[in-house]
Nucleic acid binder design. Sequence first.
DNA 1: ACCCCGATCGTA
DNA 2: ACGATCGGGGTT
Length: 179
Amino acid sequence: MILDQKFYQKDTLKVAQDLLGCFLVRKSASRRRNKIIKGMITETEAYIGKDDLACHASKGRTPRTEIMYGKAGHAYVYIVYGMYHCLNIVTEKKHFPAAVLIRAIKIDGVDYQKTNGPGKLCKFLKIDRKLNGWDMAKGERLYIEKPAQNFPKKNIVAGKRIGIDYAKHCKHYLWRFYI
DNA sequence: ACCCCGATCGTA
DNA sequence: ACGATCGGGGTT
């Protein structure tokens, strides 16, 4: 079952945890052939509102963060360190800037090392700025599926978010979740 | 127009 | 531990 807008339009911490065990699906055209890649989400991070100093929206509404103020379920794709892309899904209600970063996925038959980082998985799935703003609730090109059986909550570990030491007190928030 | 810095990754 | 590499956002 494809995750709909309602799924994403919830508390961001809940969405970040509920996404673990779900399958990120990427349909792309690769030289004539349609290719479908599915990977189980194993790590996420939450970025919530203007008060979260690690959230890009902490600087307010700007051209880049505009998408985070929009509808839940849309992709927020940006470039980090001038070289890599990061995939986020917008959460919460309109006008409240928040999103979940997909940090790692496991694809059957593919070395985990290829997809165990936000930049790596975007490279593998050919996700770039062209997909910024993409409605992931539509079930085309890029979307997320619910697993057959729900993932056991007990196996979820919470920790500090990666690479945001500049975020003062917010760097201590346990807003990173992984299996 | 310019400057600073980063939600990363591979190599050392 | 460090360099690659460039867009965004703030400042002049």
